[in-house]
């Protein structure tokens, strides 16, 4: 699925729609270069999931991991920008990030490809102009496909 957004606020709204659909164990991968809107998307996602206000969500680059919400509804926001392999991702969560419950968003997933859980939703962000972005959404595994269908329906409903 391809989604076009015309502003950072629009990108955040798509995140909000996805956030509402998330449940424990879900994995969302956000790929795209600097300034493509990944963290902005997570602001919406966290708000939609009801774990944090959009303003509370900050870039996780420095810590590599920011957590929001209360168990079991915890959002783990991982930034692999500065990671050099799957071992770095495993070290972050004591080797069991998914087993820790909640749901997880990973930015720069290509840096830790070999350690990624197999099932989830992948969004690739690209620049279409100073404010416009394109989000290419693909499913990886059965839960990913279910999320993709639900997101498509939610966005269609939002437009209509």
């Amino acid at each position: 699925m391809r989604v076009e957004t015309s502003s950072p606020a629009g990108t955040e709204r798509v995140g909000r729609s996805l956030g509402r659909l998330l449940r424990e164990g879900d994995l969302v991968l956000l790929s795209g270069e600097l300034g493509a809107g990944k963290t902005r998307f997570v602001k919406g996602l966290a708000a939609g999931a009801g774990v944090a206000r959009a303003a509370e969500v900050v870039s996780p680059t420095f810590l590599r991991l920011e957590e929001y919400g209360d168990p079991p509804r915890v959002l783990r926001h991982v930034d692999a920008y500065r990671m050099a392999g799957g071992a770095d991702l495993e070290a972050l969560g004591g080797g069991d990030l998914q087993g820790a419950g909640g749901f997880m968003v990973i930015e720069w997933p290509e840096h830790v490809e070999e350690a990624l859980p197999p099932d989830g939703l992948l969004l690739r962000f690209s620049h279409r102009g100073p404010r416009a972005r394109r989000l290419d959404v693909t499913a990886r595994g059965p839960r990913g496909r279910a999320l993709l269908r639900a997101l498509r329906a939610a966005l269609r409903k939002g437009r209509g």
Binding site: R82, M83, A84, D88, A91
Partner: peptide, 15 residues
């Protein structure tokens, strides 16, 4: 230790 990765690598850091 971190310069080759362009930042801080948590596994390296923790160890």
């Amino acid at each position: 230790l971190h310069a080759p990765y362009g930042g801080v690598v948590p596994e390296v850091a923790g160890r």
